[in-house]
Design a protein around this nucleic acid. Structure first.
Lengths: 214, 214
DNA sequence: TGTACATCAGTGAACGCGCGTTCACTGATGTAC
DNA sequence: TGTACATCAGTGAACGCGCGTTCACTGATGTAC
């Protein structure tokens, strides 16, 4: 009974429970690298976590609840990235390179979480889908605010700033998708994805002085 | 035996077989509006198509094969759209509005096919995923060729044209996603999606004269 | 510190269900003469 | 045109399997005195 991983330290009951919960989420996240959430079964998750199927119910009412917990956990990684990006107040010339670098670093550090978000953004579960989409929309709104500190953009309407922020976010999301798709063994392909994103953002930025604010 | 839809005309055996095959694909497509392909069962499809489960094997070896047939069918809709867009050789001022209009019309006319492509682009099945992604990449390459007929762009390198074509395609894909996400009952929300896309494409176009070709 | 009892995370057996796939079949359609 | 046989799209029963969920349980951890 309760003979979990051999390295089990003699800790309290609550701590051990939290560790099992984390094991279940990690097991699910690793299985989701190969399949989609809607085709992932409760028994697969418990098997991977090294626990009996019924133990699952001590932690989650259903798989859907575990899915939403994974969304929240992944948002943690996402928000960490945004916090760093917003704190990194570069000037115009370096902001593109800096932002892309931050994205690449966080995608590497949280590969499975980003993969989960990208896959489930249009996946089967509506609850998960909406949570992810509203988080991305929130992110775009924050970016719109931040954009206003740059030359020209400080004169733009909120509407125009939103439009540009969403274009940038969509581009960054595509870049994240590209990074996750590239085999980890081919750094030159990844370098190409990065270089292309930087040029795309530059092209967008070059349109700014010619934009007629409304 | 073989008492299919009441409107069955007394046609040949081969025609009737093709109709059942089409029924299976249509049934799958409609079920995919609510769930993902990887969680769709063979029995659900045959039930929806009004056919016994074993009849499925007269048409497809497996669900994966049906999935790839759906990808091909959806590409038909996609290619029809591209053909129209490439034939519609507007000048600079009208090309944006015209292209977006064509996208909107085709997304409406082939809603379920576009929904399928968007959902499965990152879905569980690798075969389906790769087929969709390589088709989109092909599309971007064709667009890169077409871009060269515009002022300034005729002097750009292939590499730069690819970069811009992918930015445009990614934006159009995001727009298609937005159109599919908008409830059909709110035309003003859809209008907003369209208007925003047109402005995003304009912003990109305004960057072109300032781009330093390499 | 020691003892008696309560809590509760994880166990293991059992269930009914929908699944993919097999197999022998049926009877309408197609073909040869 | 009529007859005898072949083809084969769709049928229906049956199978073994993994699933989600229930239930009573165990025994280590926690608490009260």
């Amino acid at each position: 009974v309760n003979t979990r991983a051999p390295s089990d330290r003699p800790v309290g009951r609550e701590q051990r429970k939290q560790r099992t919960r984390a094991d279940l989420m990690q097991a699910a996240l690793e299985l989701l690298e190969q399949k989609s959430f809607s085709s992932l079964s409760l028994r697969e998750v418990t098997r991977e976590a090294g626990v009996v199927p019924t133990a699952f119910y001590r932690h989650f009412d259903s798989m859907d609840e575990l899915g939403l917990a994974l969304v929240e956990e992944s948002f943690g990684a996402l928000r960490g990235m945004l916090r760093e990006a917003r704190a990194d107040r570069q000037d115009f010339e370096h902001v593109i390179r800096g932002s892309v670098e931050i994205l690449v670093r966080h995608v590497h550090a949280n590969r499975l979480h980003f993969l989960f978000l990208v896959r489930e953004r249009f996946g089967g579960n509506p609850g998960i889908r909406h949570a992810i989409r509203s988080e991305i929309r929130l992110f775009a709104s924050e970016l719109a605010t931040d954009l206003a500190r740059f030359p020209y953009l400080n004169e733009w309407s909120t509407d125009d700033l939103q439009m540009m922020a969403r274009l940038i976010v969509d581009t960054m999301v595509s870049t994240a998708e590209g990074l996750l798709e590239v085999p980890p063994t081919t750094p030159e392909l990844e370098e190409e994805v990065i270089r292309q994103t930087e040029r795309q953002l530059l092209l967008i930025a070059l349109g700014v002085p010619a934009w007629r604010p409304r």
